[in-house]
Simulated assay, not measured.
Amino acid sequence: MKKQTIGWLSVPFVLGIWFLVASQYPSYIFPGPIDVWNEAILQWNNGEIQSHVLLSLKRLVIGFVIAALLAFMIGILGGAFRPLREFLMPIVTFFQATPAMAWAPLLIIFLGLGDAPMIAVILIASFFPILINVIQGMNMISESHIRAAKSLGAKGWRLGVYVYLPEIIPAAISGVSVGFAIAWRSLVAAEMIGGNSGIGYFISFNGQIGNTASVILGIIIIGFLALMMDYLLLKPLQQRFAGWASRNEN
Rank of each mutant, 00 (worst) to 15 (best):
M192I: 12
G210R: 03
I130Q: 13
V178L: 15
I173M: 07
I173A: 04
A171T: 12
I193G: 11
I203R: 04
W184Q: 09
G200M: 01
A172Y: 06
F180Y: 02
P170W: 01
F224R: 04
I182K: 08
Q239T: 02
I169R: 01
S197D: 12
F205A: 14
L217A: 04
I130D: 00
E249H: 05
A149T: 05
P129L: 13
G194E: 02
G210I: 09
R247F: 11
Y201M: 08
Y231G: 13
M138S: 10
T212C: 03
S246E: 15
L227D: 14
I169P: 01
A213D: 10
I220L: 15
M140Y: 07
V178H: 08
Q208G: 14
F180V: 05
S197I: 05
A154S: 15
G153A: 02
L234T: 06
G198P: 04
F202H: 01
F128L: 06
I182D: 07
G153R: 01
G200K: 01
G223A: 11
R240S: 02
A181P: 00
L217H: 03
I173N: 01
A245E: 08
I168D: 06
G198C: 02
P236L: 00
L233I: 13
I141Y: 00
E143L: 07
L159V: 06
G218T: 09
I193M: 14
V188A: 12
E167N: 14
P170Q: 03
G137N: 06
I222Y: 05
N196Q: 12
G218C: 10
E143D: 12
D230K: 02
F202E: 04
L187R: 09
A154P: 05
S142L: 03
G210Q: 08
G207K: 08
I132E: 02
E249I: 09
P236D: 02
G207T: 10
L152E: 09
M192L: 11
K150F: 03
F224E: 10
